[in-house]
């Protein structure tokens, strides 16, 4: 007891003392010693590449030798680049798909799970599994299942259901992007279930009691108690999806690489192809700037609305 008091006094005393100037230099450096490994790393991994990445957008550069400053010329070129606009519009389609379907599936899954007592944990683990698997793994599994000769398609064809899955879905211009999105949703929705379930578990039970006393149906309880209570979580996931949809890369790259004829091209794959296959790093940088702007707008809009007093 005495020790606790002494400690509390010591803390109090330390807080009152204007001690920032009095700390000896060695101690200041000591505190920074905790930081320098991460600072050095961040410099190499994040800070320098970020600034350089944005900077090369204003240059003509192959990735080797000296970059040549060309102002906004890369952006002029972007404005006339049909492939870029195709990728941009694919990113927008992707965003629309991911802002709706997985959110619905996630809410439904979490709502159903929140209402059961038996086996909730097992369901949660199972739903979460695709999310922790590598994109390469999930992509290969679905490349196999959706292959027109070995997977689900031939089975359906055998049952007489033809021309739906027994075609090369990843290879057709009309279906490639949506098929990739399907695989990515299969991998992603369990993550939303888990996040929403955690949020729903934190909702005050009394709110439901009150709603029930008022004669609210199950759906009304969901609509007027659950949804408003977990709104911050939903808004947060919407923001994450908005960010991830701008930068989506891995599933598209692994499954189609933007083919056929750029039908499933997104900005991420176009950037990669431009930088590492066509050695046009400056132009790739300009694509990256557009992606960064998208992300900055999403985050900025979120912060702005919050500052304006929106309860998001």
């Amino acid at each position: 007891m005495a020790t606790v008091q002494a400690t509390a006094q010591a803390t109090g005393a330390r807080k009152v003392k204007p001690n920032e100037q009095k700390i000896p230099l060695a101690r200041v450096l000591g505190r920074w010693a905790f930081m320098w490994p991460i600072l050095a790393l961040n410099l190499i991994v994040i800070v320098i590449p970020s600034i350089a990445g944005l900077g090369i957008a204003f240059t003509e550069w192959s990735g080797y030798g000296q970059p040549e400053f060309i102002g906004l010329a890369n952006f002029d070129r972007l404005m006339q680049d049909a492939v870029f606009f195709k990728s941009l519009s694919n990113n927008i389609v992707w965003t629309a798909i991911f802002l709706t379907i997985p959110i619905f599936m996630g809410l439904l899954g979490a709502y159903l799970l929140a209402g059961i007592k038996r086996g909730q944990m097992i369901f949660r683990v199972l739903y979460f599994i695709p999310f922790v698997l590598a994109s390469v793994v999930n992509a290969q599994v679905w490349r196999f299942l959706l292959h027109h000769r070995v997977g689900i398609g031939p089975w359906l064809a055998d049952l007489g259901i033809t021309d739906i899955l027994d075609v090369a879905l990843f290879g057709k211009a009309e279906t490639a992007l949506y098929t990739v999105a399907f695989v990515d949703i299969w991998h992603f929705w369990g993550f939303l279930v888990v996040i929403y379930l955690a949020a729903m578990s934190a909702v005050d039970v009394e709110l439901y009691e009150v709603a029930r006393l008022d004669g609210a149906s199950r759906f009304q309880q969901f609509r007027y108690v659950t949804l408003p209570s977990i709104r911050p979580t939903i808004v947060f996931t919407l923001l994450m999806i908005l960010i991830w949809s701008a930068t989506v890369f891995d599933y598209v790259y692994i499954l189609t690489s933007g083919k056929p004829a750029h039908a499933s091209e997104v900005m991420g794959t176009y950037l990669y192809e431009t930088a590492f296959f066509r050695f046009d790093a400056g132009y790739a940088g300009a694509i990256g700037v557009v992606m960064t702007l998208w992300v900055a707008l999403a985050v900025g809009g979120f912060v702005f609305l919050r500052r304006r007093g929106w309860d998001v």
Partner: peptide, 10 residues
């Protein structure tokens, strides 16, 4: 904020 694809180049 800055996409990984972009920072990968530098």
């Amino acid at each position: 904020l800055v996409p990984v694809d972009l920072t990968a180049i530098p």
